[in-house]
Design a protein around this nucleic acid. Sequence first.
DNA 1: GTCTATAGATTGATAGAC
DNA 2: GTCTATCAATCTATAGAC
Lengths: 203, 203
Amino acid sequence: MGEKSTRERIVDAADRLFYERGYEPTSFADIANAVEISRGNFYHHFKSKDDILHAVIELRLEKTRGMLEAWERQGARPEERIRSFIRILITNEALIRQYGCPVGTLCTELAKLGHASRAEASALFTLFRTWLRRQFELLGHEADADPLALHVLARSQGVAVLFNAFGDPCFVRQEVDQICTWLSSLAARPRRSRKSQERPSST
Amino acid sequence: MGEKSTRERIVDAADRLFYERGYEPTSFADIANAVEISRGNFYHHFKSKDDILHAVIELRLEKTRGMLEAWERQGARPEERIRSFIRILITNEALIRQYGCPVGTLCTELAKLGHASRAEASALFTLFRTWLRRQFELLGHEADADPLALHVLARSQGVAVLFNAFGDPCFVRQEVDQICTWLSSLAARPRRSRKSQERPSST
DNA sequence: GTCTATAGATTGATAGAC
DNA sequence: GTCTATCAATCTATAGAC
């Protein structure tokens, strides 16, 4: 029951190492070392390194779906749910500071490599995008739900990149507070969707 | 005069390849191929791959300083100058779509590698940060100039990451317009720095 | 299912002729 | 200053014994 198969242990280790060091710089030797199996044993479970990456992305997609569903159950109102998303920046502070956002950094790396799994990795972003869009629709912003979802995604990505570069936790809290304030004001005056401009609207 | 030294040609090629493919995945063979010299010839000009990276970052720092100075000369008002920064997202649209932001992606990669030049790369961000801070000070936002600078940096980084992942130019324009609108409203009501909250302020 | 042994290519880096 | 030749290490991947 609590036992994990070798295959699962490989994917777990690869998941961690691909995040911490990146896909390309992580070798089979690194993963084998972490799992404590021999390099040769790999190819019984996966036929190539790309194959492991595929499995890692599948795992991340599954975990993300679970997390989004949990937020959906826990947050009574959509505003609270979106806040759960924004607060990952603080929940995972230590990891993001060291390694950045797992989704953003993987997409960035695979794009540069021209890797075939690039689209699969972007699907992780799409998962968040679709979920956020639905929350904004529930908030009464049907007309601009998708731009709003992308806006929130972009804000969090930007914070993650700069936090990773500068390592200043105060900056993260400032930005998170600000996004939450903006979100509250959005939730306070919903359903005014004329034709355009029910968007982040700035100021 | 128009002739470039071999050393310069190596740094130029490495600059491009480190951006397009990343630092780690770029081999000496790749650079040698681009410059059309032999691999052995490298070590007459640089003593290691890290040494080339160092030179590349120096070059980027120099180019960035030049760009910032040019914006300072061209833009009469600080608001226009900041707009010049934000509009890189559109000016360099094709490149960012394919390879992301050169600064953000390099910092991210070096952070994961635990590379010694990580701090040098972050200095590229600092260059923008300091420059933006000064523009906000000139706008009358002395008290919050640094948070405002970081905010603009983060926004642009977020847009770059998502644009690289999704490839949708409409999204970029939406966000750029929005940031510009926010900037105008900031420029319209300056110098009200009480104690806090002359910050992006959202909504 | 796990191992050892190894192939075959590529990596960063060096030595020495020209 | 540029080249060829080469080193030792590492890479992904395979073959085959147990």
